[in-house]
Computed example of a mutant assay.
Amino acid sequence: MNASLDGATSGPTVSIIGASGYSGAELTRLILRHPAVRLEHLYAFSQAGKSVSSLYPALGCDRIYRSYEGETGSDIYFLALPHGEAHAIVPKLQAAGKMVIDLSGDFRLRDTDEHERFYGGRKSPDAVMTYAMPELSREAIAGARTVSNPGCYATAIILGLAPLFARSSALPRVRSVACTAISGLSGAGRSSKTELSFAEMSENIRAYKVGVHQHTPEIMQALGTSARNPSFDFSFTPLIGPLVRGIYATLSVTLDGPVDLKEARSAYEAFYRNAPFTRVRSEMPEVRHVAHTNFCDLHVAYAGQHGTLTIVSTIDNLLKGAAGQAVENMNIMLGIDETAGL
């Protein structure tokens, strides 16, 4: 292993299940250099027996991926698995008292019917973890042993809207939200798909899952309502475009009444004053400003005289939208500096 990437020599041990995907690789990179925890095992079903360096030479890691056979020897487990696979693994880890951070959508939704509608497949009614978005639920995360990491689109959109739904907000009530968000190709995972190849996506952009994207109920749940019985109109158009990483969301909000642009910006700045990774910017954010970081950049871009508000939100989908936020949550659960290793 590259000595420059070696992290702590003592402290809790960490294993990653699903370590060979893009999010798993980012988790590997972050844990290798984390100052407070030690990387123990890397599990990858399809890549078992291969070395990390054969897939990701830049990590400078010569460990071998292993097949997960139900071991519970580590202190902390990150699950970076396809949706539907964590349900079979998490109960045993919970029973063993392990700290678990799940990056899939298996445990995000409280509503069983919504889970089945948007994700497909059955979900146990009691299969719920603490929904772990640090900016909204830091205290709950600190007291949890198992948490569900937010989705990438959901992170960008929820953080872009949360100040409008805060109990302390003096801004007019939200009547509707129209969201258009573009994601980089890595959001689809590492598996090869012709329609996501460079030849298909270079100089191209297209919408998909309009109105039925699986992050929709997660967004509504975090904002205090539901996809089945929403308290405001919400439309979501996800796009995929020719960039590797990043999410860029434009949120067009209609309020019950007009709001001053300076007042709206001040409300956002106050809401995120103690959030180390959410930056309310005075200038228009860009994907390149947050790529390879755990930041979410927000900009209140426009306020119209008839109650319209436009917010732009951007994140790195593999970091703040996945691995980085997962490590942030681990830090909170361990009671250490939230920014450690990030």
Rank of each mutant, 00 (worst) to 15 (best):
S46A: 15
Y68M: 06
N274E: 15
Q47N: 15
S192F: 13
R167N: 11
P125S: 00
N229I: 03
S282L: 10
Y77R: 05
G189C: 09
I332N: 04
T155W: 00
L164K: 13
G211E: 01
H213T: 00
G121K: 01
L334I: 07
R190D: 09
S197V: 01
I315S: 00
G120A: 11
C152P: 04
N274T: 14
M284V: 12
T9E: 13
G321D: 07
S226K: 00
I31R: 08
A142L: 08
A275W: 05
F236M: 10
T237S: 11
E40Y: 07
C152R: 04
I247Q: 00
D126M: 06
S74G: 10
L261A: 06
V177Q: 05
T216Y: 05
L309R: 04
Y68A: 05
L243G: 01
E338V: 12
G143E: 08
M99Q: 13
H83A: 09
D75H: 14
S54L: 04
A322F: 08
S226D: 02
M99T: 15
H289I: 00
S192K: 14
V244Q: 15
R38V: 13
Y153D: 03
R110S: 14
G321Y: 03
L81M: 01
A301W: 05
S4I: 07
E116F: 00
V90Q: 04
P230N: 08
Q94T: 06
A162E: 11
G184N: 08
P285V: 02
E218R: 04
D233C: 13
H87A: 15
Q305I: 00
S226V: 00
L342N: 05
L239N: 09
R245H: 11
L298H: 03
Y56K: 13
E116M: 06
R288S: 05
M99W: 06
